[in-house]
Nucleic acid binder design. Structure first.
Lengths: 155, 155
DNA sequence: AAGATAATGTTTCCTTGTAAACAAATTTCG
DNA sequence: CGAAATTTGTTTACAAGGAAACATTATCTT
Protein backbone atom coordinates (compact mmCIF):
# COMPACT_ATOMS: atom_id res chain seq x y z
CA UNK A 1 0.00 0.00 0.00
CA UNK A 2 1.30 3.36 -1.03
CA UNK A 3 -0.40 6.39 0.36
CA UNK A 4 2.05 9.00 -0.82
CA UNK A 5 0.38 12.25 -1.77
CA UNK A 6 0.28 12.61 -5.53
CA UNK A 7 -2.09 15.45 -6.35
CA UNK A 8 -2.17 19.03 -5.20
CA UNK A 9 -5.60 18.56 -3.66
CA UNK A 10 -4.22 15.97 -1.32
CA UNK A 11 -1.48 18.14 0.09
CA UNK A 12 -2.07 18.78 3.75
CA UNK A 13 -2.17 22.48 4.56
CA UNK A 14 -3.51 22.37 8.09
CA UNK A 15 -4.02 25.86 9.47
CA UNK A 16 -2.88 27.38 6.23
CA UNK A 17 -6.22 26.51 4.71
CA UNK A 18 -7.79 29.00 7.05
CA UNK A 19 -5.29 31.73 6.32
CA UNK A 20 -7.10 34.36 4.31
CA UNK A 21 -3.97 36.01 2.98
CA UNK A 22 -2.64 32.69 1.80
CA UNK A 23 -5.89 31.81 0.06
CA UNK A 24 -6.00 35.18 -1.64
CA UNK A 25 -2.46 34.75 -2.88
CA UNK A 26 -3.13 31.30 -4.29
CA UNK A 27 -6.33 32.44 -5.94
CA UNK A 28 -4.64 35.44 -7.45
CA UNK A 29 -1.73 33.42 -8.81
CA UNK A 30 -4.11 30.93 -10.29
CA UNK A 31 -5.96 33.65 -12.15
CA UNK A 32 -2.72 35.11 -13.49
CA UNK A 33 -1.50 31.75 -14.66
CA UNK A 34 -4.78 31.21 -16.45
CA UNK A 35 -4.51 34.63 -18.02
CA UNK A 36 -1.02 34.08 -19.34
CA UNK A 37 -1.88 30.58 -20.47
CA UNK A 38 -4.29 32.10 -22.98
CA UNK A 39 -2.92 32.52 -26.49
CA UNK A 40 -3.10 36.06 -27.86
CA UNK A 41 0.02 37.81 -29.05
CA UNK A 42 0.66 41.33 -27.86
CA UNK A 43 -2.21 41.44 -25.42
CA UNK A 44 -2.02 44.07 -22.75
CA UNK A 45 -0.88 42.74 -19.42
CA UNK A 46 -3.43 43.03 -16.61
CA UNK A 47 -1.50 45.84 -14.97
CA UNK A 48 -1.27 47.85 -18.15
CA UNK A 49 -4.90 47.36 -18.96
CA UNK A 50 -6.10 48.40 -15.55
CA UNK A 51 -3.96 51.53 -15.59
CA UNK A 52 -5.27 52.55 -18.99
CA UNK A 53 -8.82 51.69 -18.03
CA UNK A 54 -8.74 53.73 -14.86
CA UNK A 55 -7.25 56.70 -16.64
CA UNK A 56 -9.97 56.39 -19.22
CA UNK A 57 -12.61 56.39 -16.49
CA UNK A 58 -10.95 59.24 -14.60
CA UNK A 59 -9.40 61.66 -17.07
CA UNK A 60 -6.85 63.89 -15.42
CA UNK A 61 -6.37 61.53 -12.49
CA UNK A 62 -3.27 62.07 -10.44
CA UNK A 63 -0.56 59.51 -10.67
CA UNK A 64 -0.45 59.12 -6.90
CA UNK A 65 -4.14 58.33 -6.80
CA UNK A 66 -3.69 55.66 -9.42
CA UNK A 67 -1.01 54.16 -7.19
CA UNK A 68 -3.34 54.10 -4.22
CA UNK A 69 -6.25 52.57 -6.06
CA UNK A 70 -4.28 49.97 -7.98
CA UNK A 71 -1.91 49.14 -5.13
CA UNK A 72 1.09 49.89 -7.26
CA UNK A 73 4.19 51.44 -5.75
CA UNK A 74 5.16 54.91 -6.90
CA UNK A 75 8.50 53.80 -8.24
CA UNK A 76 6.86 51.17 -10.34
CA UNK A 77 4.05 53.41 -11.51
CA UNK A 78 6.60 55.84 -12.87
CA UNK A 79 7.95 53.11 -15.11
CA UNK A 80 4.52 51.94 -16.20
CA UNK A 81 3.37 55.43 -17.08
CA UNK A 82 6.58 56.30 -18.89
CA UNK A 83 6.26 53.16 -20.97
CA UNK A 84 2.64 53.90 -21.81
CA UNK A 85 3.62 57.43 -22.68
CA UNK A 86 6.29 56.16 -25.06
CA UNK A 87 3.73 54.01 -26.77
CA UNK A 88 1.78 57.18 -27.32
CA UNK A 89 -1.14 56.11 -25.19
CA UNK A 90 -1.07 58.42 -22.19
CA UNK A 91 -0.30 62.10 -21.83
CA UNK A 92 1.27 63.57 -18.71
CA UNK A 93 0.47 67.10 -17.68
CA UNK A 94 1.94 69.05 -14.78
CA UNK A 95 -0.90 71.09 -13.35
CA UNK A 96 -0.24 74.68 -12.30
CA UNK A 97 -2.17 74.30 -9.07
CA UNK A 98 0.34 71.78 -7.80
CA UNK A 99 3.47 71.38 -9.80
CA UNK A 100 4.60 68.29 -7.90
CA UNK A 101 1.84 66.18 -9.35
CA UNK A 102 1.09 64.70 -12.73
CA UNK A 103 -2.32 64.57 -14.34
CA UNK A 104 -2.89 61.66 -16.67
CA UNK A 105 -5.12 61.39 -19.69
CA UNK A 106 -5.38 59.03 -22.61
CA UNK A 107 -4.45 60.06 -26.10
CA UNK A 108 -6.77 59.17 -28.95
CA UNK A 109 -4.53 56.17 -29.63
CA UNK A 110 -4.76 55.26 -25.97
CA UNK A 111 -8.54 55.36 -26.08
CA UNK A 112 -8.45 53.13 -29.11
CA UNK A 113 -6.06 50.69 -27.48
CA UNK A 114 -8.22 50.33 -24.39
CA UNK A 115 -11.39 49.99 -26.38
CA UNK A 116 -9.66 47.33 -28.38
CA UNK A 117 -8.42 45.39 -25.38
CA UNK A 118 -11.49 45.79 -23.19
CA UNK A 119 -13.58 43.16 -24.86
CA UNK A 120 -10.98 40.45 -24.47
CA UNK A 121 -10.06 41.52 -21.00
CA UNK A 122 -13.57 41.47 -19.59
CA UNK A 123 -14.35 38.29 -21.47
CA UNK A 124 -11.48 36.69 -19.62
CA UNK A 125 -12.56 38.19 -16.33
CA UNK A 126 -15.93 36.61 -16.80
CA UNK A 127 -14.32 33.21 -16.98
CA UNK A 128 -12.57 33.75 -13.65
CA UNK A 129 -14.20 31.85 -10.85
CA UNK A 130 -15.91 29.28 -13.03
CA UNK A 131 -15.46 26.89 -10.12
CA UNK A 132 -18.26 28.84 -8.45
CA UNK A 133 -21.87 29.23 -9.42
CA UNK A 134 -23.30 32.62 -10.32
CA UNK A 135 -24.48 33.49 -6.86
CA UNK A 136 -21.23 32.42 -5.23
CA UNK A 137 -19.31 34.47 -7.74
CA UNK A 138 -21.40 37.50 -6.97
CA UNK A 139 -20.98 36.91 -3.27
CA UNK A 140 -17.21 36.66 -3.65
CA UNK A 141 -17.17 39.92 -5.55
CA UNK A 142 -19.14 41.66 -2.86
CA UNK A 143 -16.81 40.42 -0.14
CA UNK A 144 -13.68 41.36 -2.03
CA UNK A 145 -15.01 44.83 -2.77
CA UNK A 146 -15.66 45.29 0.89
CA UNK A 147 -12.22 44.01 1.74
CA UNK A 148 -10.54 46.53 -0.51
CA UNK A 149 -12.91 49.46 -0.05
CA UNK A 150 -14.45 49.55 -3.45
CA UNK A 151 -18.01 50.65 -3.21
CA UNK A 152 -20.37 48.35 -5.04
CA UNK A 153 -21.78 49.32 -8.38
CA UNK A 154 -25.09 51.07 -8.36
CA UNK A 155 -26.47 48.55 -10.79
CA UNK B 1 -16.69 74.08 -6.73
CA UNK B 2 -14.04 71.47 -7.18
CA UNK B 3 -15.15 67.92 -7.68
CA UNK B 4 -11.78 66.42 -8.53
CA UNK B 5 -11.36 62.95 -7.18
CA UNK B 6 -9.05 62.98 -4.17
CA UNK B 7 -9.35 59.63 -2.48
CA UNK B 8 -8.90 56.14 -3.75
CA UNK B 9 -12.47 55.24 -2.87
CA UNK B 10 -13.73 57.88 -5.25
CA UNK B 11 -11.85 56.59 -8.25
CA UNK B 12 -14.26 55.39 -10.88
CA UNK B 13 -13.58 51.79 -11.90
CA UNK B 14 -16.71 51.06 -13.88
CA UNK B 15 -16.72 47.45 -15.10
CA UNK B 16 -13.44 46.79 -13.38
CA UNK B 17 -15.25 46.66 -10.08
CA UNK B 18 -16.96 43.52 -11.30
CA UNK B 19 -13.78 41.90 -12.52
CA UNK B 20 -13.00 39.06 -10.16
CA UNK B 21 -9.38 38.73 -11.18
CA UNK B 22 -8.83 42.41 -10.63
CA UNK B 23 -10.45 42.33 -7.22
CA UNK B 24 -8.38 39.33 -6.20
CA UNK B 25 -5.22 41.07 -7.29
CA UNK B 26 -5.99 44.24 -5.36
CA UNK B 27 -6.97 42.29 -2.28
CA UNK B 28 -3.83 40.22 -2.43
CA UNK B 29 -1.58 43.24 -2.86
CA UNK B 30 -3.26 44.95 0.02
CA UNK B 31 -2.60 42.00 2.29
CA UNK B 32 1.06 41.86 1.26
CA UNK B 33 1.53 45.55 1.83
CA UNK B 34 0.02 45.18 5.28
CA UNK B 35 2.29 42.25 5.97
CA UNK B 36 5.45 44.08 4.99
CA UNK B 37 4.33 47.20 6.81
CA UNK B 38 4.58 45.27 10.06
CA UNK B 39 7.81 45.76 12.00
CA UNK B 40 9.69 42.54 12.81
CA UNK B 41 13.25 42.12 11.69
CA UNK B 42 14.17 38.92 9.92
CA UNK B 43 10.67 37.56 9.67
CA UNK B 44 10.10 34.86 7.12
CA UNK B 45 8.51 36.08 3.96
CA UNK B 46 5.07 34.62 3.24
CA UNK B 47 6.45 32.46 0.45
CA UNK B 48 9.19 31.03 2.62
CA UNK B 49 6.86 30.38 5.48
CA UNK B 50 4.30 28.59 3.36
CA UNK B 51 6.94 26.39 1.77
CA UNK B 52 8.36 25.41 5.14
CA UNK B 53 4.92 24.91 6.58
CA UNK B 54 3.77 22.66 3.79
CA UNK B 55 6.93 20.58 3.98
CA UNK B 56 6.37 20.28 7.70
CA UNK B 57 2.82 19.08 7.10
CA UNK B 58 3.88 16.74 4.29
CA UNK B 59 7.29 15.30 5.06
CA UNK B 60 8.95 13.89 1.98
CA UNK B 61 6.72 15.87 -0.37
CA UNK B 62 7.95 16.17 -3.92
CA UNK B 63 9.19 19.51 -5.07
CA UNK B 64 6.88 19.45 -8.08
CA UNK B 65 3.87 18.92 -5.87
CA UNK B 66 4.85 21.88 -3.76
CA UNK B 67 4.96 23.91 -6.95
CA UNK B 68 1.48 22.83 -7.90
CA UNK B 69 -0.08 23.51 -4.53
CA UNK B 70 1.64 26.82 -3.90
CA UNK B 71 1.36 28.04 -7.49
CA UNK B 72 5.09 28.61 -7.65
CA UNK B 73 6.97 28.01 -10.88
CA UNK B 74 9.54 25.23 -10.95
CA UNK B 75 12.38 27.59 -11.75
CA UNK B 76 11.53 29.74 -8.79
CA UNK B 77 10.96 26.83 -6.45
CA UNK B 78 14.46 25.60 -7.16
CA UNK B 79 15.83 28.89 -5.91
CA UNK B 80 13.60 28.93 -2.84
CA UNK B 81 14.48 25.39 -1.86
CA UNK B 82 18.19 25.89 -2.43
CA UNK B 83 18.13 28.96 -0.25
CA UNK B 84 16.25 27.14 2.50
CA UNK B 85 18.69 24.29 2.20
CA UNK B 86 21.61 26.65 2.63
CA UNK B 87 20.04 28.02 5.76
CA UNK B 88 20.03 24.46 7.00
CA UNK B 89 16.26 24.21 7.19
CA UNK B 90 15.31 21.74 4.53
CA UNK B 91 16.91 18.53 3.35
CA UNK B 92 16.70 17.31 -0.24
CA UNK B 93 16.70 13.63 -0.97
CA UNK B 94 16.73 11.96 -4.37
CA UNK B 95 14.49 8.91 -4.04
CA UNK B 96 15.60 5.69 -5.66
CA UNK B 97 12.13 5.00 -7.04
CA UNK B 98 12.38 8.03 -9.27
CA UNK B 99 15.71 9.70 -9.49
CA UNK B 100 14.32 12.72 -11.32
CA UNK B 101 12.45 13.94 -8.30
CA UNK B 102 13.39 15.48 -5.00
CA UNK B 103 11.81 14.65 -1.69
CA UNK B 104 11.81 17.43 0.85
CA UNK B 105 11.89 17.29 4.61
CA UNK B 106 12.64 19.76 7.35
CA UNK B 107 15.74 19.53 9.44
CA UNK B 108 15.45 19.93 13.18
CA UNK B 109 16.49 23.56 12.72
CA UNK B 110 13.81 23.90 10.07
CA UNK B 111 11.17 22.54 12.40
CA UNK B 112 12.29 25.03 15.00
CA UNK B 113 12.22 27.90 12.56
CA UNK B 114 8.68 27.14 11.44
CA UNK B 115 7.46 26.63 14.95
CA UNK B 116 9.01 29.95 15.80
CA UNK B 117 7.46 31.80 12.91
CA UNK B 118 4.06 30.13 12.95
CA UNK B 119 2.66 32.10 15.84
CA UNK B 120 3.39 35.44 14.28
CA UNK B 121 2.35 34.34 10.84
CA UNK B 122 -1.05 33.05 11.83
CA UNK B 123 -1.57 35.96 14.15
CA UNK B 124 -1.14 38.21 11.16
CA UNK B 125 -3.37 36.05 9.02
CA UNK B 126 -6.09 36.47 11.60
CA UNK B 127 -5.95 40.21 11.16
CA UNK B 128 -6.48 39.89 7.42
CA UNK B 129 -9.99 40.79 6.40
CA UNK B 130 -10.77 42.89 9.42
CA UNK B 131 -13.00 44.93 7.12
CA UNK B 132 -15.38 41.98 7.27
CA UNK B 133 -17.30 40.52 10.15
CA UNK B 134 -16.68 36.98 11.33
CA UNK B 135 -19.30 35.37 9.18
CA UNK B 136 -18.27 37.26 6.08
CA UNK B 137 -14.69 36.27 6.68
CA UNK B 138 -15.65 32.65 6.97
CA UNK B 139 -17.75 32.91 3.84
CA UNK B 140 -14.87 34.45 1.94
CA UNK B 141 -12.60 31.64 3.03
CA UNK B 142 -15.06 29.03 1.87
CA UNK B 143 -15.41 30.66 -1.53
CA UNK B 144 -11.68 31.05 -2.01
CA UNK B 145 -11.04 27.44 -1.04
CA UNK B 146 -13.55 26.37 -3.60
CA UNK B 147 -11.98 28.62 -6.19
CA UNK B 148 -8.57 27.08 -5.67
CA UNK B 149 -9.59 23.50 -4.97
CA UNK B 150 -8.64 23.29 -1.37
CA UNK B 151 -11.03 21.09 0.47
CA UNK B 152 -12.39 22.69 3.61
CA UNK B 153 -11.14 21.68 7.00
CA UNK B 154 -13.04 18.98 8.77
CA UNK B 155 -13.43 21.21 11.78
C1' DA C 1 14.87 -3.75 -26.41
C1' DA C 2 15.01 0.91 -28.76
C1' DG C 3 13.60 5.12 -30.03
C1' DA C 4 10.18 8.65 -29.09
C1' DT C 5 7.77 11.18 -25.55
C1' DA C 6 7.00 12.96 -20.96
C1' DA C 7 8.23 14.40 -16.21
C1' DT C 8 11.30 16.77 -13.06
C1' DG C 9 14.75 19.94 -11.76
C1' DT C 10 18.21 23.27 -12.96
C1' DT C 11 20.39 27.07 -15.33
C1' DT C 12 20.49 31.38 -17.73
C1' DC C 13 18.45 35.43 -19.10
C1' DC C 14 14.89 38.64 -18.75
C1' DT C 15 10.68 41.15 -16.78
C1' DT C 16 8.22 42.81 -12.95
C1' DG C 17 8.18 44.96 -8.67
C1' DT C 18 10.39 47.03 -4.32
C1' DA C 19 13.46 49.89 -1.23
C1' DA C 20 16.00 53.77 -0.37
C1' DA C 21 17.87 58.08 -1.45
C1' DC C 22 16.89 62.13 -3.85
C1' DA C 23 14.69 66.50 -5.98
C1' DA C 24 11.17 69.61 -6.28
C1' DA C 25 7.01 71.69 -4.85
C1' DT C 26 3.70 72.45 -1.15
C1' DT C 27 1.89 72.74 3.50
C1' DT C 28 2.32 73.40 8.46
C1' DC C 29 3.23 75.95 12.27
C1' DG C 30 6.18 78.39 15.41
C1' DC D 1 7.12 85.21 7.16
C1' DG D 2 10.40 81.18 7.13
C1' DA D 3 12.27 76.81 8.72
C1' DA D 4 10.66 72.09 9.19
C1' DA D 5 7.87 68.54 7.67
C1' DT D 6 5.06 66.44 3.95
C1' DT D 7 3.68 65.16 -0.64
C1' DT D 8 4.78 63.70 -5.17
C1' DG D 9 7.41 61.81 -8.53
C1' DT D 10 11.97 60.05 -10.20
C1' DT D 11 16.29 57.52 -10.10
C1' DT D 12 19.27 53.81 -8.94
C1' DA D 13 20.31 49.50 -7.25
C1' DC D 14 18.38 45.23 -6.01
C1' DA D 15 15.01 41.13 -5.16
C1' DA D 16 11.24 38.33 -6.70
C1' DG D 17 9.38 35.79 -10.23
C1' DG D 18 8.85 33.88 -15.12
C1' DA D 19 10.27 31.85 -19.94
C1' DA D 20 12.98 29.04 -22.49
C1' DA D 21 16.50 25.86 -23.22
C1' DC D 22 18.71 22.07 -21.22
C1' DA D 23 20.04 17.54 -18.59
C1' DT D 24 18.53 13.57 -16.55
C1' DT D 25 15.51 9.96 -15.61
C1' DA D 26 11.28 7.54 -16.46
C1' DT D 27 7.46 5.94 -19.37
C1' DC D 28 5.24 4.78 -23.59
C1' DT D 29 4.98 2.64 -28.21
C1' DT D 30 5.97 -0.65 -31.16
Amino acid sequence: MDVRVRSAEQVELDQLQSALGFLLRIAQLKVFQQYFMQPGEDRLKPGEFSVLWVIKCNPGIRQSLLCQRLMIKRAHMTKLIRALEERGWVARRIPDEDRRGVELTLTAEGEAAVADAAEGFFAFENTVGSELNASEREQLMVLLRKLVNIKGSGL
